[in-house]
Design a binder for these strands. Structure first.
Lengths: 238, 238
DNA sequence: TAGATTGTTAATCGATTAACAATC
DNA sequence: TAGATTGTTAATCGATTAACAATC
């Protein structure tokens, strides 16, 4: 019964048939990153209390999350940093090679193509595409891994040549849906969308959206609320 | 009792003492953006069912969220697009002017300074700071609103001169905490962090973090799972 | 009046927390 | 053995959903 691959709404069935809640999946990258920092500092073992503080969660939450992956800790001792990090990477699919096609090489696409945090976590920028003729043919990317910008009409070829399995949309909002349609037609089934529009896709395609302004708007909400709670004219800081 | 400003864990007390759950606050920017699209197309009234589909939520969820702001819909008719959008903007604090200080004008900081989605939603880039002498003194920004890059030693002055009330950290990971400490000392209490490290701040400072790789990692999880569920060798798409 | 749609209630569902037995 | 810490249980908490009375 517990190994039955159900269609449980917010949980996802893993390799061994374990259902991992979406809330836990969203925290695994955080633990993965924090464990990387500990490993760099030569730390070999970590207790749930320490790892939890560094991750911004409670130790109960951390242990509950980790217990879904398996039993990698040792009672009375803690968790092995390297091994736990590997198991999280494996669960997230970071032990395989991801080839990313970036569509839209404006300011944001350029920044993403150069972002060291992608490569360091196993995401290789495999192809670049843009609609602007002035950009097409230029080379973009981190030193030692430069790529030519290809015209948008070659999108399907670029996807096929690079064998991309994830696409990033970094175009203006108006181009995002047409680009998305072409990506889907080209066989891409995982899309990260930075354009501030919701995309419609077939059910077997996964789209995640990052709206850079949304976090600023949420911050605005909290800052405004703080200003309202304190009477005007208060001192602004230390 | 219901107007008492409690310290309820995940809800936030609004102007009129209403507690708005964090989950609702996180969706308000989405509704705000979708309503903007409807307004552009000249749509004056919208039913919860339509707005919900465009926002990717259920109509029950949408009505429940909106009911926390007040009673702006008309039974049998729907919601007034312009007015509802205004009320959401007011709740989010978007009716006031936000001045943003960007620290780190590398690829990402450059992209953020040029991002039209900030200005269009009421966030004005007010000052730029970088540690790289080669960048200091250069002008960056959208045409008609260019700003000089100031040296990081002038961070406090830049914050004061521009009267910034939000800061964005777009530096490498190692610089993020020291920069954060200086921002807090300069009186900034709302920080959006793009560096992939957790920042420690006093309790009265609000930090939100955007790790550009996290969404890619979550996408990786789902893509991997899909590949595992389908036997190898399947056709890749239409 | 008849049809449509909101705002709200009550039930369901999932996620978090605290506590502790298991065990290193 | 004594101390520490995990993995799990049961209780709590919050968020979502379905249904419908209110009402335009």
């Amino acid at each position: 019964m517990s190994t039955e691959p159900t269609d449980h709404p917010t949980s996802v069935v893993g390799a061994a048939g374990r259902g991992i809640p979406g809330a836990t999946v969203a925290r695994l990258p955080i633990y993965h990153r924090v464990l990387g920092g500990l490993a760099e500092r030569g730390i070999v073992t970590v207790a749930s209390a320490q790892l939890a503080v560094a991750s911004g969660v409670t130790s109960a939450q951390l242990r509950k999350d980790l217990s879904r992956l398996g039993s990698y800790g040792t009672r009375g001792v803690g968790y092995p940093v390297g091994h736990l990090r590997y198991e999280i990477a494996r669960e997230l699919g970071l032990t395989q090679d991801w080839r990313v096609l970036i569509v839209g090489v404006g300011n944001l696409g350029h920044a993403l193509a150069n972002y060291p945090g992608f490569a360091s976590r196993g995401f290789r920028v495999a192809a670049l595409v843009d609609a602007n003729p002035a950009l097409v043919g230029s080379y973009v990317g981190i030193a030692g891994h430069q790529l030519p910008v290809r015209p948008v009409r070659e999108l399907a070829d670029a996807a096929a040549d690079s064998d991309a399995n994830i696409a990033v949309i970094a175009t203006p909002a108006v181009s995002a849906q047409p680009v998305c349609d072409r990506l889907v037609a080209a066989g891409i089934r995982s899309i990260l969308n930075f354009a501030p529009v919701a995309l419609s896709v077939p059910a077997d395609v996964e789209v995640r959206m990052v709206d850079l302004a949304v976090e600023l708007q949420i911050l605005s909400f909290h800052e405004q609320r703080r200003a309202q709670n304190c009477p005007a004219g208060q001192v602004v800081g230390a």
